[in-house]
Simulated scan of single mutants.
Amino acid sequence: MFDTIAFDADDTLWHNEVIFQDTQKLFYQMLQPYADEETIHQNLSKVEMSNVRLFGYGITGFTLSMIETALEISAGQIPQTKIQYIIDCGKQMLEAPLELLPDVKSTLEQLVDSYNLMLISKGDLMHQMNKVELSGLADLFSIIEIVAEKNKYTYQKIVHKHKLTASSLLMVGNSMKSDILPILEIGGSAVYIPYHVTSHVEMIAHENTPSDRFWELESLKDLPQLLSKITQVASY
């Protein structure tokens, strides 16, 4: 039924959002003299959403958004040392060790002989490519695409570029907004594997997903079994 299985990277193959969450906690603590945590959170979310169109997704844009938020919350009174602290936090995020989610490598190894595996990730190009290399998974993918945004137009371009058909493409990811709904919109199929933390920039209401092209799993290790069932049903 599927020729190509595409995988999201961050929070589908390896941990990512927890690094952002941990840094935000430090950021809130630093700004406690100026505002309460909820006020800081709301301001940071607003600034980050506004800056996505300029800086894209990733740690660099997030760090700049923290600096801008700190200046706004403190009315420009925040000391230079605190700005340097934010910059250092951003650098630590970029240098954080990469940790694969459970059963990722073994699951991909089960699939690589039967399917064309693709990686589609968004964010800072250099950082994303570094993570792909650190993961030890690069050789399992025949196609690796790092994109600025994930929407139906991005997926249409990828399908066209690699001479695929949407109906033969299965996307696996943790974000309904970026990984699931756009693929379904262009006629592809999708497997949703929720991560325990979701970035506010990825939250979106969803309903009426097509039951014959959409599945939800608790873990990536369940994917081979699901594919076997789908194949059996399709063969009848």
Rank of each mutant, 00 (worst) to 15 (best):
A6D: 10
F7V: 04
T12L: 14
L13I: 08
E17V: 00
F20N: 15
D22K: 10
Y28E: 13
Y28W: 12
Q29G: 03
M30G: 12
Q32G: 02
Q32F: 04
A35I: 03
D36R: 08
E37M: 05
H41V: 01
Q42E: 07
N43D: 05
N43S: 11
L44R: 11
S45V: 13
M49D: 12
S50F: 04
G56C: 07
Y57I: 02
T60Y: 13
G61P: 11
T63H: 00
M66E: 04
E68D: 15
T69F: 05
T69V: 11
A70T: 08
L71E: 09
S74D: 03
A75F: 06
A75I: 07
Q77A: 15
K82G: 00
Y85P: 00
I87N: 14
C89V: 01
G90A: 13
M93A: 05
L94M: 10
A96R: 13
P97K: 15
L98Q: 02
L100H: 04
L100C: 04
L101A: 09
L101S: 11
L111P: 02
S114I: 01
Y115D: 13
N116I: 09
N116P: 04
M118V: 11
L119Y: 08
I120A: 14
I120G: 03
H127N: 12
K131R: 15
V132D: 03
E133F: 07
L140P: 01
L140E: 02
I144M: 09
E145G: 04
I146N: 04
K150F: 02
Y153Q: 14
T154S: 12
Y155K: 10
K157P: 02
K157L: 10
L164N: 14
T165C: 10
S167Q: 05
S167C: 02
S168V: 06
S168F: 01
S168W: 03
L170M: 07
M176L: 15
M176G: 10
M176V: 14
S178M: 01
S178E: 04
S178A: 12
D179Y: 01
L181Y: 02
P182F: 00
L184R: 08
L184P: 01
L184K: 08
E185S: 11
I186V: 15
S189Q: 04
Y192E: 03
P194H: 10
P194I: 15
Y195R: 00
H196M: 07
H196W: 07
T198I: 05
T198W: 00
V201C: 00
H206W: 14
N208L: 09
P210I: 03
D212C: 10
R213L: 05
R213W: 10
W215T: 07
E216W: 00
E216G: 02
L217R: 04
L217E: 03
L220S: 10
D222K: 15
L226F: 13
S228T: 14
V233I: 12
A234D: 08
A234I: 06
S235M: 15
